[in-house]
């Protein structure tokens, strides 16, 4: 990431609004692909290191405009709980991930929604194919990310995974989504 950031000098400047849109879009996409690959390959440490200290990792339930402070979500982790989740996966006794899910996800329709100083809000669609002991599951979501440029590289501040069927019963979701 650092080498890439250096090749887009204007992007790594504190004010991302000054960046050339195509270059910004490219660097955003590269970050999303990296995050997707770390999750798909269960690189728990690498994935956890992407998050900032004020992180929010959120999978809403019953719609995508609920208030997670008042209503139930499938997952609503702050940085501390992300850490617990990762440590649990690393015990080797997180039974639902022992053996691990085999995963391949595709991210598309990446749109830079808003740029504010060193932060950028991004929308993307994602399809995740999961194979595990139960069988095959296809997950579809409209994701919203907030990325922050820190020391020349993007970090993940907020990730909302709005599963399109989150108003219905869903199977166990124990991989990094």
């Amino acid at each position: 990431m650092t080498a890439l950031a250096q090749s887009f000098a204007d992007v790594s400047a504190p004010d991302l609004a000054a960046a050339e849109p195509a270059a910004l879009h490219h660097q955003v996409a590269q970050f999303l692909y990296l995050e997707a690959r770390l999750a798909d390959t269960h690189d728990y440490d690498g994935w956890e290191a992407l998050w900032t200290d004020d992180a929010i990792y959120w999978v809403p339930a019953n719609g995508d405009d609920t208030d997670p402070e008042k209503e139930m979500s499938v997952l609503y982790d702050n940085r501390s709980r992300i850490g617990v989740r990762i440590r649990q996966l690393k015990t080797g006794r997180r039974h639902t991930q022992t053996p691990r899910s085999e995963l391949a996800r595709v991210i598309s329709n990446i749109e830079v929604a808003e740029v504010r100083g060193s932060e950028v809000d991004v929308r993307a669609n994602v399809l995740i194919y999961e194979d595990n002991l139960r069988g095959d599951t296809l997950w579809a979501a409209r994701n919203v990310y907030r990325l922050r440029m820190v020391d020349g590289a993007f970090r993940l501040v907020r990730k909302k995974i709005a599963l399109v069927n989150n108003n219905k019963p869903i199977y166990t979701l124990s991989f990094l989504v």
Partner: peptide, 17 residues
């Protein structure tokens, strides 16, 4: 509750497995 139960819960995902 959000941390422990439901499809991504630290407890119930393993019970359900």
């Amino acid at each position: 509750t959000m941390g422990s139960v439901g499809p991504a819960g630290l407890l119930l995902a393993d019970d359900t497995e």
